[in-house]
Nucleic acid binder design. Structure first.
Length: 822
RNA sequence: GGGGAAGUGGCGGAACGGUAGACGCAGCCGCCUCAAAAGCGGCCGGGCAAACCCCGUGAGGGUUCAAAUCCCUCCUUCCCUACCA
């Protein structure tokens, strides 16, 4: 009786050995082509879930494949360790955020190791380590020096009870998620990064990111939101004030019947008439308690007349100025021209408040006069538009822009939807922003040699107010310039700051004098394959691109100014058709799967269920199928290990029977599939695993028929080599048992051999008028004439041809012959 | 409202203009066994007694010698985004 396969001890053994022998340690080697494989930095929430497992299994299969294909592979892992959940745990359980985070990292690191993923652990980084975040501070200061980090007032979500700023996701139905008080919008002084300065480049360079999913590029395009138009100015009657508006539809300028401004617009207070003041203030007050979400998507279009009038710079018409809830203070100029006839939002507003609707663009071929039921949004021909009447919309936009420029009333302008990145958080568990406020010198950056500004330990975290501001030991300091008394900035950084450059720190993780060495970065960057979920399509992936362009401008990185050459989004893993969630109790735990089924079976299952980009369903039956496969491989190999030692895997043995040919072909079909899926970057290893099934089926069949065949020895010997990237533990075990002293993962991959892939006969389909009438077994390379002659002999073909005249023949070598009749 | 992706057996999927359903799961039959499990072998889209015949890739149309695959319209599902002027 053969020895049964003990996946538990085998998997443990190889994980230990890979660790001890550091077989995945990466070193720069100018002689070899580098390959940087990276999975997105995980947040240490406490437990690894199957979604992580799918992500890391795919990344690991790719990294191992590329290594075996001769590339110098770097494949690191680390922890995105700062963030709110640690602080929330502190508030809820009185835990120390640091202890809580460290414990989670320890557990998740254990689980990642359990998966047997081949990371270079010597490069592991943890973003809450002072050795890491000091470089966060250093980079912040460089951004500051270049005017890309600045502080200004901005409206934020403020909870008056807890006296803290809330993130958008912590505002539920306009209320604080903790105390359920209404959240206010307050203007507070906040740190921003000037990503808008890079908007144009971030947009344009999307074009060269051909290795990115199109939908992700589209999302970034939409997020950046470039729009071309013009900005121009309305004078305000009886006032020095003017109101500027941005529009992409200058052709509708003569259709303006009112001006709509955001309540926060600075001109409002100055232009509002005595009579209207109370109403306007009440309206503004009522909006203050509403979050942006509420103000925009949930509310009807409301507004109050300011009593003031503006003058249209071209038509000289006077139009009322309204304060409205549907104009955003943060976009454009915070004011828009109201054109009810040609903008749906303006249309709804005008209807509600009985404002006139003036049609100035006529649909092609249509006559005006009929009242509109909705705004007409398309281009057309201008009517009732002064000198511009009769022009097409595009021409009118140009002509009106020219006129405004000539009058000095406006200019062509490009506007971006993207706003500067708000990076300050009034929170404890993050990187302290390295700025000091001196009574005499004002805002002073902390000098580099005083970094890091350490996050103090043992600070009470209550969720009320800013913990750092409340800590005098942290807050009180001396000014680096004048040594006078000063206060430290008490805000910490958004955690997306850390994750915008971590991939560079991996390259040189212990460097004490710089965030990374430029020569080392020159060798490894950019990242050849980045793998992670689509949920970061905009945030993380956009911020990182921004940082990398900044680094490139400084000369700190060279070559491409994009960090991620190719990007792959793996799909989610569902269970019972639903997202796994603790509250539903339908979570599949890594520990349990590894214990009960083994890592290799889990990896094979995750690769096999669906193509990697698709959503997959975890099923107990499905994983059982892969457990069976692992055991089949063992039974197919273990009794033949001695026999297999006689085979040279690098030399194709001769095949003397059909069965042997079939087996040798199955071996090389599997190898070819693995290589092709990797190099094409399609990564559909589900098809590769299917080929491994066929391989093992063919192997077992020949073992029954001809156990002594050299083809059996060869196929047994080659199996671990081919399987190594997908079932790495089983592969190394078999490899060792065949007498090898070094890991199979350091071998070069089996090169697909054309001789093995060749076949003796092919099935040639004979069609008549596109319908299959016969199948011929012919040698490959059979000529069209021979095939035609053979085809005509087929009774089924004859029956169809009968009296008919043959008009043409289509012949695809080794595939098909189509006879077309008249 | 806008944008994107996808619809193939009972299920996951394969087929990147040329044999639709590889491979696996589930199911059924058989072998092995005292028995069960495991394992091994076979069957497994629909119609038909059966077939080498006919039908069949969400629906309808088109391009082509040939369409699951390319194009148009519609339906359905999922994801993202949302008053951006």
């Amino acid at each position: 009786m053969a020895e049964p396969y003990d996946y538990r001890s085998v998997e443990r053994k190889w994980q230990q050995r890979w660790d001890e022998q550091r077989i995945f340690a990466a070193r720069e080697d100018a002689a070899k082509q580098k390959y940087y494989a990276l999975e997105m930095l995980p947040y240490p929430s406490g437990d690894l879930h199957i979604g992580h497992a799918k992500n890391y299994t795919l990344g690991d299969a790719i990294a191992r494949m590329m290594r075996m294909l001769g590339y110098n592979v770097i494949h690191p892992m680390g922890w995105d360790a700062f963030g709110l959940p640690a602080e929330n745990a502190a508030i809820a359980h009185g835990a120390d955020p640091s202890d809580w985070t460290r414990a989670n990292i320890a557990n998740m690191q254990r689980q990642v190791r359990l998966m047997g993923t081949g990371y270079d652990w010597s490069r592991e980084i943890t973003t809450c380590d002072p050795e890491y975040y000091r470089w966060n501070q250093w980079l912040f200061l460089r951004l500051y020096e270049h005017g890309l980090a600045y502080k200004r007032e901005a409206p934020v979500n403020w909870c008056p009870h807890d006296r803290t700023v809330l993130a958008n996701e912590q505002v539920i139905d306009g209320r604080c998620w903790r105390c359920e008080n209404l959240v206010e919008r307050r203007n507070l002084s906040q740190w921003f990064l000037k990503i808008t300065e890079y908007a144009e480049r971030l947009l344009d360079d999307l074009e060269i990111l051909e290795g990115w999913p199109e939908r992700t590029r589209t999302m970034q395009r939409n997020w950046i939101g470039r729009s071309e138009g013009a900005q121009f100015t309305f004078a305000v009657e009886n006032s020095e004030e003017t109101i500027s508006v941005f529009t992409t539809r200058l052709d509708t300028l003569f259709g303006v019947t009112y001006l709509a401004v955001a309540p926060e617009h600075p001109a409002v207070a100055k232009i509002v008439t005595k009579k209207a003041r109370t109403a306007v203030e009440q309206f503004t007050q009522s909006l203050q308690s509403k979050s942006e979400l509420e103000r925009t998507s949930l509310m009807e279009k409301e507004g109050v007349f300011t009593g003031a009038y503006a003058v249209n710079p071209l038509s000289h018409e006077r139009v009322p100025i309204w304060v409205t809830n549907y104009v955003l203070a943060e976009y454009g100029t915070g004011a828009v021209m109201g054109v009810p006839a040609h903008d749906q939002r303006d249309f709804e507003f005008a209807r509600k408040h009985a404002l006139p609707i003036a049609q100035v663009v006529a649909p092609p071929g249509a006559d005006l006069g009929a009242p509109l039921h909705e705004a007409y949004l398309e281009d057309g021909r201008l009517v009732a538009s002064g000198d511009f009447t009769g022009m097409s919309s595009p021409r009118a936009r140009e002509a009106i822009a020219d006129r405004l420029v000539a009058l000095g009333a406006g200019a062509r302008q490009v506007n971006f939807r993207i706003r500067d990145w708000l990076v300050s958080r009034q929170r404890y568990w993050g990187t302290p922003i390295p700025i000091v406020y001196c009574e005499r010198c004002g805002e002073v950056p902390v000098p580099d040699d005083q970094l890091p500004v350490l996050l103090p330990a043992n600070v009470p975290v209550t969720g009320e107010g800013s913990p750092l501001a409340n800590d005098p030991a942290f807050s009180n300091t001396t000014c680096p310039k004048c040594d006078g008394p000063a206060k430290r900035e008490s805000d910490t950084m958004d955690t997306f700051f850390e994750s915008s450059w971590y991939y560079l720190r991996y390259l040189d993780p212990h460097n004490a004098s710089a965030p990374w060495d430029q020569e080392i970065a020159r060798y490894w960057m950019p990242i050849d394959q980045y793998i992670g979920g689509a949920e970061h399509a905009v945030l993380h992936l956009l911020y990182s691109r921004f940082f990398y362009k900044f680094f490139h401008d400084r000369g700190w990185v060279t070559g491409s100014n994009e960090p991620f050459t190719r990007l792959f989004h793996q799909g989610m893993v569902l269970y019972n058709g639903e997202k796994m969630s603790k509250s539903r109790g339908n979570v599949i735990g890594i520990d349990e799967v590894v214990e009960k089924r083994g890592v290799d079976a889990m990896r094979l299952f995750l690769l096999y269920v669906t193509p990697p980009e698709d959503t997959s369903d975890w099923t107990d039956e499905g994983i059982n199928g892969r457990v069976r496969f692992v055991n089949r491989v063992w039974r197919a190999c273990e009794p033949f290990l001695d026999h297999a030692k006689s085979a040279n895997v690098r030399a194709l043995p001769p095949a003397s029977s059909e069965e042997e040919k079939t087996l040798l072909r199955a071996v090389h079909v599997a190898a070819k599939s693995a290589v092709d899926e990797t190099l094409s970057r399609r990564f559909h290893y589900n098809t590769t695993v299917a080929k491994l099934d066929e391989y093992v089926n063919a192997l077992m069949a020949l073992e029954q028929a001809a156990p002594d065949s050299p083809a059996v020895a060869y196929a047994v010997h080659a199996l671990p080599l081919i399987m190594a990237p997908f079932a790495p533990h089983l592969a190394d075990e078999l490899w060792e048992r065949m007498g090898h002293k070094t890991s199979v993962h350091l071998e070069s991959y089996l090169e697909p051999d054309m001789r093995a892939l060749a076949v003796d006969t092919v099935t040639l389909v004979v069609q008549v008028n596109g319908k299959i009438r016969a199948r011929l077994q012919v040698p490959p390379g059979t000529s069209e004439d021979d095939a035609f002659a053979l085809g005509l002999e087929q009774p089924a073909v004859q029956a169809q041809l009968d009296e008919k005249r043959i008009q043409r023949r289509i012949f695809i070598a080794d595939k098909l012959l189509n006879i077309v009749t008249g």
